[in-house]
Write a protein that binds this DNA or RNA. Structure first.
Length: 227
DNA sequence: AACTCGATCAACCGCTAAAGG
DNA sequence: CCCTTTAGCGGTTGATCGAGT
Protein backbone atom coordinates (compact mmCIF):
# COMPACT_ATOMS: atom_id res chain seq x y z
CA UNK A 1 0.00 0.00 0.00
CA UNK A 2 1.19 3.48 -0.80
CA UNK A 3 1.31 6.57 1.28
CA UNK A 4 -2.30 7.40 0.64
CA UNK A 5 -3.66 3.97 1.29
CA UNK A 6 -3.87 3.37 -2.44
CA UNK A 7 -2.32 0.37 -4.10
CA UNK A 8 1.11 1.25 -5.42
CA UNK A 9 1.49 1.69 -9.13
CA UNK A 10 2.11 -1.68 -10.62
CA UNK A 11 4.65 -0.38 -13.12
CA UNK A 12 7.58 1.96 -12.84
CA UNK A 13 7.34 5.12 -14.90
CA UNK A 14 9.53 8.04 -15.79
CA UNK A 15 13.17 8.18 -16.82
CA UNK A 16 15.08 4.94 -17.20
CA UNK A 17 18.06 4.10 -15.04
CA UNK A 18 21.26 2.53 -16.36
CA UNK A 19 20.38 -0.65 -14.47
CA UNK A 20 17.00 -0.84 -16.19
CA UNK A 21 18.64 -0.21 -19.54
CA UNK A 22 21.03 -3.06 -18.97
CA UNK A 23 18.23 -5.44 -18.05
CA UNK A 24 16.37 -4.49 -21.21
CA UNK A 25 19.45 -4.83 -23.42
CA UNK A 26 20.18 -8.24 -21.94
CA UNK A 27 16.60 -9.29 -22.51
CA UNK A 28 16.67 -8.29 -26.17
CA UNK A 29 20.02 -9.95 -26.74
CA UNK A 30 18.60 -13.12 -25.31
CA UNK A 31 15.06 -13.14 -26.67
CA UNK A 32 15.11 -10.68 -29.54
CA UNK A 33 12.77 -7.77 -30.14
CA UNK A 34 9.11 -8.24 -29.49
CA UNK A 35 6.90 -9.87 -26.88
CA UNK A 36 7.40 -6.73 -24.86
CA UNK A 37 4.81 -7.59 -22.24
CA UNK A 38 6.91 -10.52 -21.12
CA UNK A 39 9.97 -8.38 -20.47
CA UNK A 40 8.89 -7.59 -16.94
CA UNK A 41 8.50 -11.26 -16.11
CA UNK A 42 11.59 -12.54 -17.92
CA UNK A 43 13.98 -9.66 -17.24
CA UNK A 44 12.83 -8.62 -13.81
CA UNK A 45 11.87 -5.13 -14.92
CA UNK A 46 8.98 -3.30 -13.29
CA UNK A 47 8.07 -1.69 -16.60
CA UNK A 48 5.12 -2.44 -18.80
CA UNK A 49 5.67 -3.68 -22.33
CA UNK A 50 4.85 -0.39 -23.92
CA UNK A 51 7.48 1.43 -21.93
CA UNK A 52 10.08 -1.24 -22.71
CA UNK A 53 9.38 -1.19 -26.42
CA UNK A 54 9.59 2.61 -26.51
CA UNK A 55 12.86 2.65 -24.63
CA UNK A 56 14.33 0.10 -27.01
CA UNK A 57 13.21 1.57 -30.31
CA UNK A 58 13.91 5.17 -29.38
CA UNK A 59 17.08 4.88 -27.37
CA UNK A 60 18.73 1.50 -26.87
CA UNK A 61 18.57 0.05 -30.38
CA UNK A 62 22.19 -0.37 -31.54
CA UNK A 63 21.51 0.92 -35.05
CA UNK A 64 20.48 4.35 -33.86
CA UNK A 65 22.48 7.32 -35.03
CA UNK A 66 23.49 9.52 -32.15
CA UNK A 67 24.21 13.20 -32.20
CA UNK A 68 22.86 16.26 -33.88
CA UNK A 69 20.62 16.18 -36.90
CA UNK A 70 22.85 17.08 -39.82
CA UNK A 71 21.97 19.82 -42.31
CA UNK A 72 21.38 17.10 -44.88
CA UNK A 73 18.99 15.31 -42.58
CA UNK A 74 17.28 18.58 -41.75
CA UNK A 75 16.66 19.25 -45.40
CA UNK A 76 15.13 15.83 -45.87
CA UNK A 77 12.89 16.37 -42.87
CA UNK A 78 11.65 19.67 -44.24
CA UNK A 79 11.08 18.40 -47.72
CA UNK A 80 9.37 15.22 -46.65
CA UNK A 81 7.22 17.07 -44.15
CA UNK A 82 6.04 19.26 -47.00
CA UNK A 83 4.92 16.10 -48.76
CA UNK A 84 3.71 13.91 -45.93
CA UNK A 85 2.71 16.27 -43.17
CA UNK A 86 3.01 14.89 -39.65
CA UNK A 87 3.56 11.32 -40.73
CA UNK A 88 6.70 11.03 -38.68
CA UNK A 89 7.28 7.33 -38.99
CA UNK A 90 7.05 7.60 -42.76
CA UNK A 91 9.59 10.39 -42.75
CA UNK A 92 11.82 8.45 -40.37
CA UNK A 93 12.06 5.55 -42.81
CA UNK A 94 14.07 7.80 -45.08
CA UNK A 95 16.49 8.76 -42.33
CA UNK A 96 18.45 5.68 -41.26
CA UNK A 97 19.20 5.64 -37.56
CA UNK A 98 16.68 8.33 -36.69
CA UNK A 99 13.42 7.67 -34.90
CA UNK A 100 10.02 9.14 -35.55
CA UNK A 101 10.08 10.63 -32.07
CA UNK A 102 13.38 12.35 -32.73
CA UNK A 103 12.20 13.77 -36.02
CA UNK A 104 8.91 14.88 -34.53
CA UNK A 105 10.70 16.64 -31.69
CA UNK A 106 13.16 18.25 -34.07
CA UNK A 107 10.53 19.55 -36.42
CA UNK A 108 8.31 20.86 -33.65
CA UNK A 109 11.07 22.71 -31.86
CA UNK A 110 12.72 24.10 -34.95
CA UNK A 111 9.99 24.71 -37.48
CA UNK A 112 6.51 24.59 -36.04
CA UNK A 113 6.23 28.31 -35.43
CA UNK A 114 7.80 29.29 -38.71
CA UNK A 115 5.47 27.13 -40.73
CA UNK A 116 2.32 27.88 -38.76
CA UNK A 117 0.76 30.54 -40.96
CA UNK A 118 2.02 29.63 -44.39
CA UNK A 119 1.84 25.91 -43.98
CA UNK A 120 0.01 23.74 -46.42
CA UNK A 121 -3.26 22.20 -45.31
CA UNK A 122 -2.37 18.91 -43.74
CA UNK A 123 -5.91 17.61 -43.64
CA UNK A 124 -5.58 16.21 -47.11
CA UNK A 125 -1.98 15.24 -46.77
CA UNK A 126 -2.54 11.72 -48.01
CA UNK A 127 -3.63 12.93 -51.42
CA UNK A 128 -0.94 14.19 -53.73
CA UNK A 129 -2.25 17.13 -55.64
CA UNK A 130 -0.69 19.15 -58.37
CA UNK A 131 0.21 22.03 -56.10
CA UNK A 132 2.28 19.84 -53.87
CA UNK A 133 3.90 18.22 -56.85
CA UNK A 134 4.88 21.62 -58.17
CA UNK A 135 6.27 22.60 -54.79
CA UNK A 136 8.26 19.43 -54.61
CA UNK A 137 9.66 19.85 -58.07
CA UNK A 138 10.62 23.42 -57.27
CA UNK A 139 12.41 22.20 -54.18
CA UNK A 140 14.16 19.61 -56.23
CA UNK A 141 15.47 22.35 -58.47
CA UNK A 142 16.64 24.37 -55.49
CA UNK A 143 18.87 21.57 -54.36
CA UNK A 144 22.55 22.39 -54.51
CA UNK A 145 24.47 21.82 -57.69
CA UNK A 146 26.85 19.36 -56.06
CA UNK A 147 23.88 17.15 -55.28
CA UNK A 148 22.75 17.38 -58.86
CA UNK A 149 26.20 16.46 -60.11
CA UNK A 150 26.25 13.39 -57.94
CA UNK A 151 22.75 12.55 -59.07
CA UNK A 152 23.78 12.94 -62.70
CA UNK A 153 26.75 10.64 -62.39
CA UNK A 154 24.63 8.19 -60.48
CA UNK A 155 22.16 8.08 -63.33
CA UNK A 156 24.82 7.86 -65.98
CA UNK A 157 26.65 5.02 -64.31
CA UNK A 158 23.57 3.01 -63.54
CA UNK A 159 21.13 4.13 -66.19
CA UNK A 160 20.03 0.74 -67.45
CA UNK A 161 19.56 -0.74 -64.06
CA UNK A 162 17.82 2.28 -62.64
CA UNK A 163 15.49 2.91 -65.53
CA UNK A 164 14.40 -0.69 -65.54
CA UNK A 165 12.84 -0.06 -62.17
CA UNK A 166 10.95 3.07 -63.02
CA UNK A 167 7.61 1.45 -63.85
CA UNK A 168 7.61 -0.46 -60.61
CA UNK A 169 5.75 1.90 -58.36
CA UNK A 170 6.32 -0.29 -55.35
CA UNK A 171 10.05 -0.72 -55.67
CA UNK A 172 12.56 1.08 -53.54
CA UNK A 173 16.23 0.99 -54.34
CA UNK A 174 19.03 1.93 -52.03
CA UNK A 175 22.46 2.48 -53.47
CA UNK A 176 25.15 1.93 -50.90
CA UNK A 177 28.70 0.62 -51.03
CA UNK A 178 28.56 0.40 -54.81
CA UNK A 179 25.66 -2.01 -54.74
CA UNK A 180 21.95 -1.80 -55.15
CA UNK A 181 19.63 -2.87 -52.43
CA UNK A 182 16.04 -3.34 -53.43
CA UNK A 183 13.18 -3.03 -51.05
CA UNK A 184 9.47 -3.62 -51.55
CA UNK A 185 8.27 -0.15 -50.79
CA UNK A 186 6.54 2.48 -52.79
CA UNK A 187 8.98 5.07 -53.85
CA UNK A 188 10.89 7.05 -56.36
CA UNK A 189 14.17 8.80 -56.60
CA UNK A 190 14.52 11.58 -54.13
CA UNK A 191 18.07 12.77 -53.73
CA UNK A 192 21.64 11.67 -53.89
CA UNK A 193 24.40 12.74 -51.58
CA UNK A 194 27.37 11.18 -49.83
CA UNK A 195 27.06 8.07 -51.94
CA UNK A 196 23.58 7.44 -50.69
CA UNK A 197 20.77 7.33 -53.19
CA UNK A 198 17.53 7.69 -51.35
CA UNK A 199 14.24 6.57 -52.82
CA UNK A 200 11.47 8.00 -50.78
CA UNK A 201 8.02 6.49 -50.60
CA UNK A 202 5.23 8.76 -51.72
CA UNK A 203 1.49 8.46 -51.34
CA UNK A 204 0.41 5.91 -53.87
CA UNK A 205 -0.18 7.19 -57.35
CA UNK A 206 -3.91 7.23 -57.87
CA UNK A 207 -4.15 8.33 -61.47
CA UNK A 208 -2.25 8.18 -64.71
CA UNK A 209 -1.28 11.78 -64.18
CA UNK A 210 0.44 10.90 -60.92
CA UNK A 211 2.27 8.02 -62.48
CA UNK A 212 3.45 10.16 -65.36
CA UNK A 213 4.68 12.73 -62.90
CA UNK A 214 6.64 10.14 -60.99
CA UNK A 215 8.31 8.93 -64.14
CA UNK A 216 8.91 12.49 -65.22
CA UNK A 217 11.24 12.93 -62.30
CA UNK A 218 13.51 10.43 -63.92
CA UNK A 219 14.00 12.55 -66.99
CA UNK A 220 17.40 14.13 -66.55
CA UNK A 221 16.33 17.09 -68.66
CA UNK A 222 14.01 18.08 -65.85
CA UNK A 223 16.92 18.95 -63.62
CA UNK A 224 18.61 22.29 -63.94
CA UNK A 225 22.18 21.20 -63.91
CA UNK A 226 25.27 23.21 -64.67
CA UNK A 227 28.08 20.77 -64.95
C1' DA B 1 21.23 34.78 -5.55
C1' DA B 2 16.71 34.02 -7.09
C1' DC B 3 13.58 34.03 -10.50
C1' DT B 4 11.43 33.65 -15.17
C1' DC B 5 11.10 31.77 -19.55
C1' DG B 6 11.82 29.40 -23.72
C1' DA B 7 13.99 25.33 -25.76
C1' DT B 8 14.71 20.63 -25.69
C1' DC B 9 13.50 15.86 -25.66
C1' DA B 10 12.47 11.46 -23.21
C1' DA B 11 8.54 9.35 -22.05
C1' DC B 12 3.82 9.40 -21.46
C1' DC B 13 -1.17 8.82 -23.26
C1' DG B 14 -5.04 7.41 -26.14
C1' DC B 15 -6.09 5.31 -30.00
C1' DT B 16 -5.96 2.09 -34.06
C1' DA B 17 -4.70 -1.86 -36.75
C1' DA B 18 -2.96 -6.29 -37.11
C1' DA B 19 -2.20 -10.70 -35.22
C1' DG B 20 -3.43 -14.57 -32.50
C1' DG B 21 -6.67 -17.80 -30.60
C1' DC C 1 -16.99 -14.19 -36.14
C1' DC C 2 -15.51 -12.12 -31.34
C1' DC C 3 -12.20 -11.19 -27.88
C1' DT C 4 -7.55 -10.43 -26.33
C1' DT C 5 -2.94 -9.29 -27.09
C1' DT C 6 0.62 -6.87 -29.33
C1' DA C 7 2.85 -3.37 -32.08
C1' DG C 8 2.90 1.00 -33.69
C1' DC C 9 1.49 5.88 -34.51
C1' DG C 10 1.04 10.79 -33.49
C1' DG C 11 -0.13 14.25 -29.94
C1' DT C 12 1.12 15.92 -25.55
C1' DT C 13 3.44 16.45 -21.17
C1' DG C 14 6.75 17.65 -17.87
C1' DA C 15 11.59 17.51 -16.11
C1' DT C 16 15.64 19.76 -16.96
C1' DC C 17 18.76 23.23 -18.44
C1' DG C 18 20.77 27.47 -19.72
C1' DA C 19 20.30 32.32 -20.79
C1' DG C 20 18.58 36.51 -19.47
C1' DT C 21 16.99 39.70 -15.81
Amino acid sequence: MGRWGIIEEEWRKGPWTVEEDKLLIDYVNLHGEGRWNSVARLAGLKRNGKSCRLRWVNYLRPDLKRGQITPYEERIILELHAIWGNRWSTIARSLPGRTDNEIKNYWRTHFKKKVKKSSIDNSKKIKVHSLKRQQFQQQQQLNSQIDMKKMMSFFEENENKVLSHVPKQNMTILYQNNTFHEQEQGGFFYSMINGYANYVPLPEASSNEDIMWDIGLWNLDDFNVNL
